Simulated assay, not measured.
Amino acid sequence: MGALETEDQPAPVSPLKPKKLKTSKDVHFSVLPDKYEPLEEERDEEEVMEDTKERLRRKEEKKRKKKIRYKKYRKNMGKALRFSWRCLIAGLQSLVPVYMGPMAAASSVVTTANTGPTAR
């Protein structure tokens, strides 16, 4: 109840630094016989073939997905290029009359001027 702590009551642990308890580790040793051979799992040829088949199947699946993805990409790019080409052609066709307008007016003036004096 005072400032002294008893052995029965542990010191309060601050929430920032939890108190670490010291423990010992149990280590087990054993003597191995002279002719000890570790167990190794033998892989059958069937398992090796299955692994190879599985690897090939995954590789083919990856190729197939990549092919489908590129096919979609080519299709979308083709659509975008065709639309862009059509817009370019439409824009050029709308510019032609504006560009050719002054030349057409000049040629009509020149032809009327040439026919006028010769008719007298």
Rank of each mutant, 00 (worst) to 15 (best):
E54V: 01
R74Q: 12
K25C: 06
A113L: 10
P10C: 01
S24H: 04
R64E: 13
E47V: 03
E47Y: 11
Y73R: 15
E54L: 11
Y36I: 00
Y99T: 05
R69H: 12
L21S: 12
G116I: 06
T52Y: 09
M49W: 12
E50P: 01
T52K: 12
T115I: 04
K35H: 14
A80F: 02
R43V: 15
L92Q: 04
K79T: 07
K63G: 12
K20N: 06
E54W: 06
L16H: 04
K67D: 13
R86Y: 05
R86F: 04
R58L: 14
P15S: 07
A106Q: 08
K67G: 04
E54M: 07
Q93A: 13
A90Q: 05
D51Y: 00
R43M: 14
D44F: 14
G2V: 00
I89V: 14
K62S: 13
S84Q: 04
E50I: 13
P117D: 04
K19N: 10
D44M: 11
L4E: 09
R43P: 01
L92G: 01
E37N: 06
P117C: 05
K53W: 08
K22I: 08
E46M: 07
H28K: 15
A106N: 07
G116W: 10
K66A: 15
A90D: 06
L81V: 10
V109A: 10
V110G: 04
Q9F: 08
R69N: 11
A104L: 06
T111N: 07
R64Y: 14
L92F: 02
V110D: 07
L95S: 03
D51K: 02
F83D: 15
P102N: 01
C87G: 09
K67E: 15
K22S: 11
L81D: 09
V27A: 02
T118R: 08
K65P: 00
F29K: 11
L92S: 05
T118V: 10
A105V: 10
T52F: 09
S94A: 11
S84D: 02
K53D: 10
S108P: 01
E45P: 02
E61R: 09
T118A: 08
I89Y: 00
E46H: 09
G78D: 07
A3Q: 04
S24V: 10
W85A: 08
E42A: 14
L4V: 13
P15Y: 03
W85V: 02
S24W: 03
Q93G: 02
D51H: 01
A3V: 03
